[in-house]
Amino acid sequence: MKITREEIEYIGHLSRLELSPEEVEMYTLQVGRILEYMEKLKTLNTEGVVSTSHAMPIKATIRDDGVSPSFTIEESLSNAPDRFGAFFRVPPIIEVDE
């Protein structure tokens, strides 16, 4: 098998996904099969081949450093699940001892 249950659980954690035991089971099997299929790339000699990350060789474009309109605070926050004034509100990130 290309991937173990433990690895799927760990990757789930890295991906910030909570997987049920059934999901772990299913993905271990399916991802394993897909990775096995990907093994065929190993049969190809790619020594010295430059990697492509973008299909079209375009130079990074740099715009003029000018002022232009952007979203207002209200627009930016319009879909916020929770807000406080002009901020997105989230659960505490740093615990403070009281």
Binding site: I8, G12, L14, S15, L17, V31
Partner: peptide, 12 residues
Amino acid sequence: KRRIILGTYVLS
């Protein structure tokens, strides 16, 4: 989810 798992794995 399947693709996120696969993608996270190949980049890990």
